[in-house]
Design a protein around this nucleic acid. Sequence first.
DNA 1: TGCCAGGCCGGGT
DNA 2: ACCCGGCATGGC
Length: 218
Amino acid sequence: MIGKDKILRDIFERLYNYFGPQGWWPAESPFEVCLGAILAQNTSWENVKKTIQNLKEEKLLDPYLLYNLSYERLANLIKSSGYYNLKAKRLKNFLKFLLENYAGEIERMRGEDLETLRRKLLEIKGLGPETVDSILLYALDKPIFVIDSYTYRIFYRHNLCPEETTYEELQEIFHTFLPKDVSFFKEYHALLVALGKKFCKKKEPLCKGCPLENLNDL
DNA sequence: TGCCAGGCCGGGT
DNA sequence: ACCCGGCATGGC
């Protein structure tokens, strides 16, 4: 029986060799990461990019300005990300939290304890574990591993976890068997997404040419 | 054309 | 505690 840590490192190595460095998160500021994390919920990144670009052109990439827009205006601005009514509310919930507790400055969150901050962020309506962990890891450089639907699918299909695994359980695997290194976590999650997009879509159960082929033939 | 994309909430069992 | 429908645009 080979150790889980070896398998996890092997996966990373294969992905890194195949895809190269991903340099995530694709954003110019921690605040932009937060917006992107919310907008990207169950939505393709290409659609989110348009929204972010849109906000930049309107010079609205600012918590005060965004928060003070009407729901209608905000929803209209983020339309290309889908679920725009829902996400307008979710964005405002986050912005309100940011303005009231941190004067709208992401940097003021950085000093807080990881577990405390995670609990607080999860209380914001519309932010679930993936969104919160993305913010923690990619905007605040906290050592926490982000799980998404690709991670589930990849791990399940390679018999690395049961199908009914919960978010926290899968996350715990990474936390237990890998060093809590921020850059490593950032790159690893990004690589899993790259793999998911290319080789692990819902409709294509067989990963032909997938860099994780023969993973268990060690 | 239908299915999918870097989820999450709320109401019903 | 789970299960499921709803939310919505844009690309293939």
